[in-house]
Amino acid sequence: MIRVEDVRHVYKTADERVALDGVSCTIDDGEFVAIIGVNGSGKSTLAKHFNALLLPTSGKIFVDGLDTAAAENLWHVRKNIGMVFQNPDSEIVAAIVEDDVAFGPENLGIAPEMIRQRVDLALDAVNMSGYKNFAPSKLSGGQKQRIAIAGVIAMRPKVIVFDEPTAMLDPQGRREILQMVKRLHAQGLTIIYITHFMEEAAQAQRVLVMDGGRIVRDDTPREIFTDTNEMRRLGFDVPIAVEMSDRLRKRGFKLPKKILTATELAEALQ
């Protein structure tokens, strides 16, 4: 479980930018939480606090009850919370896929025969077993990102934080990654998923909306995405099915409230 208590984070630049301005939330084991927000709303800064890549300027973060700011807890925190970033090219360290996946567990000091097994299972989990001996540079963006995810899985974390993992991918790569994320969640991992893509956030169980360094909404995707005025005010696109339902209601169509998907709109129009 992750508990964030009134966290502020001020970047030590000339203008002392306040990136997080009193954030509190709790993320339970096994949850799939999406975090959305415009550029500069603080979502990536918050993500980097979960595994102590950044420490709060004030406030506390507890992972399984352990304070991330205490040096003696760092090992537990980093071991249990994996991170996947936007650009797979900057995460890949080795010249061969399986070496890359083995990098994390090797650093944990795990016995070589156990590493072998973990790497095989991790590559299997991301459907990349056939690429063990490939050079990562020969893979597509989506495949590289899957290798980066395998590297995190091989460390056996309880939580994976994804910071816009699909931003640099094409539509097919995005579909691959989202499927992977849903499968990992179904297997019991806690997922924290930061994204610009509303249709991806809509797959989560819970959505946190960030604005100006604060969490301004914490609700189900349906409640958040069907609130069109609020979505626009915060600078988000409204899902097309939600927008179209609004337009049709204005034309006199009697439609149920809170239609979220095209399938729901199709049923309502039958």
Partner: peptide, 23 residues
Amino acid sequence: KLLHALGIDAVALTADEAEKIIA
């Protein structure tokens, strides 16, 4: 994609166009 999901075989480039077609 929305038009296809609604079973409408037509081309729309914008939400305005799609709205008229659905209506």
